[in-house]
Simulated scan of single mutants.
Amino acid sequence: MTSTEQRVAIVTGGSRGIGRETAERLAADGFAVVINYAGNKAEADAAVEAIQKAGGQAVAAQADVADETAVSAVFDLAEQTYGGVDVAVHAAGIMTLAPLVDLDLDDFDRMSRTNIRGTFVVDQQAARRLRPGGAIINFSTTVVGLKLPTYTAYAATKGAVEALTTILAKELGTRDITVNAVAPGPTATALFLDGKDDELIARMAAQNPRGRLGTPADIAEVVAFLAGPGRWVNGQVIRVNGGIA
């Protein structure tokens, strides 16, 4: 059990990709971290072990982010283990790509449940429980602005996340809790790379002024800023994409 001076972060989707990189970065910055995962306990345990080996503090907690009872239990665990919660990073999300005319509505419903309802549930618990001086950091996508074909449904769910983020920032302003969203561009994660051939990946990397895909560390750096010193950034959607447009 640590003192209430310990800064504590919950990171949903924290067992892999950007979520894991963010969890490790926050731990390196001195946060105790609760890593939420959907189903792969082995990956979550590996993330916890990596943080602990580096001298940080972390525990894992399984929960479907769209299940309010399960998410409440994750916050309970954080409070019982570390004394409270200061930062909620909601990095969990799913993506299915297809032209609108072809998209299976079951896939749309699954994305909506995880990406929209999941954000609402996590943010609702965070709004109820975060200590003053805290931060909520949601995840959108640069595709909301790029408007790429086949991303219709995914971008629609993330547009909802952006609306929720900017309004919640106003609702929580008097409590000294900031609410922002990061919107990564093409980033070398399993979620992005799945189903794309080498030619397409190279073409997308070449579209960026920096000539490469983003990395999870590029995104985690911005999340760490919003979770720490970036107290005057509030109600914003930050396109973390290297300049792609």
Rank of each mutant, 00 (worst) to 15 (best):
R7D: 05
I10W: 04
S15V: 04
S15T: 03
I18M: 12
E21T: 14
T22M: 02
A23T: 09
G30K: 04
I35G: 06
E49H: 07
E49S: 10
Q52I: 08
Q52R: 15
Q57C: 03
V59P: 01
A63S: 13
A63F: 06
V65G: 01
V65W: 02
D67N: 10
D67S: 13
E68P: 11
E68G: 04
S72C: 07
S72L: 11
T81F: 01
V85P: 00
D86F: 01
V87L: 11
L100P: 03
D107E: 15
F108D: 00
R110N: 13
N115W: 00
D123E: 14
D123Y: 15
Q124G: 02
A127E: 02
F139L: 11
V143H: 05
G145N: 05
K147G: 11
T152E: 10
Y154C: 04
K158L: 01
E162R: 13
A163H: 13
A163M: 09
L164F: 13
L168A: 13
D176Y: 03
I177D: 01
I177M: 00
T178L: 06
T178Y: 00
V179N: 10
T189L: 07
D194I: 04
G195M: 05
K196D: 02
L200I: 14
I201E: 03
A205N: 02
A206F: 10
G214D: 00
P216E: 11
D218L: 14
I219A: 00
A220R: 00
E221V: 11
A224N: 14
L226C: 13
G228S: 15
R231T: 13
W232E: 00
Q236A: 15
V240G: 03
N241D: 15
G243V: 04
